[in-house]
């Protein structure tokens, strides 16, 4: 489990993250939702140590990450998989090399065992047979899936996904969402997903935190979100005409 307690972050005079607390549970898809620029990505970057925390605690199974030594932090990071918004695949490496990379760095597996694991991960994300392709040869959806394969290659205990379906068509988005949900449940991973896509929220939102102007405004799950009385969340969820129609249909 990951728990954040009263975390704060400022950039210059901008208070970007304000006293946010939340618990991310293993085996569940934990979603962080909110408008663009509300501080979601900053929270994740604080959680993985890419930004320094101003105050608060980030607990990985009870260990306060910001207070750990560099070596202890690296040990935790070895258990983290991250799916970046743009994929962040290594351009100079093939798909197979990308997925194999964490295995080469942190395991003593034989070449055959590594290849077996790579093929297993590629099969999970439905990219079998694409081993020798370079990132430039992949479509947007394939890049996301390839990045997901790399993120799970080293059996992560914690998985972070930064807008996993941004820029994807609705059908591919659902494929990615379901992949993440299945992997989370199958391997009991503590998964943290940043999204502002309401389709994703309704598809896989088991434990949701709504961030507004850097603050935690609401927590709940996908069944509660449609009944919310929180004004900011209501405006966010029902911003589109489609969601307004869903609401009016459910009220009838």
């Amino acid at each position: 489990m990951i728990e954040i307690k009263n975390i704060n972050k400022t950039f210059g005079d901008r208070h970007v993250v304000k006293d946010v607390s939340f618990k991310f549970y293993p085996g569940k898809t934990n979603l962080m939702i909110g408008e663009s620029g509300c501080g979601k990505t900053t929270i994740v970057k604080l959680m993985v140590g890419l930004h320094e925390l101003d105050s608060g605690e980030i607990l990985y199974d009870g260990q306060n990450f910001p207070k750990l030594s560099q070596i202890e932090k690296q040990d935790i990071r070895k258990k983290i998989g991250m799916l970046f918004q743009g994929g962040a695949l290594f351009d100079s490496q093939t798909l197979e090399e990308n997925v194999m990379f964490p295995l080469e760095m942190f395991t003593e597996l034989s070449k055959e065992e590594k290849l077996e694991r790579v093929n297993f991960c590629l099969e999970k994300v439905q990219l079998v047979g694409k081993n020798k392709l370079y990132p430039a040869e992949l479509s947007g959806g394939m890049k996301k899936r390839a990045a997901l394969a790399r993120a799970i290659a080293n059996n992560p205990k914690y998985l972070f996904c930064d807008e996993p379906n941004s820029g994807l068509d609705p059908k591919t988005s659902i494929v990615i969402d379901n992949l993440i949900k299945d992997l989370t449940e199958e391997f009991n991973i503590t998964t943290v997903i940043i999204t502002h896509d309401m389709n994703s929220v309704m598809e896989i939102g088991e434990n949701i935190m709504f961030i507004h102007k850097g603050q935690n405004y609401w927590t709940g799950d996908k069944t509660q979100i449609l009944k919310t009385t929180n004004k900011e969340l209501f405006d966010f969820v029902f911003a589109s005409e489609f969601m307004k129609q869903v609401l009016s249909a459910s009220n009838k």
Partner: peptide, 12 residues
């Protein structure tokens, strides 16, 4: 393109 961030998060 966040490839360096990806390395850092992997613990590299």
């Amino acid at each position: 393109t966040e490839q360096i961030d990806a390395l850092e998060i992997m613990g590299i």
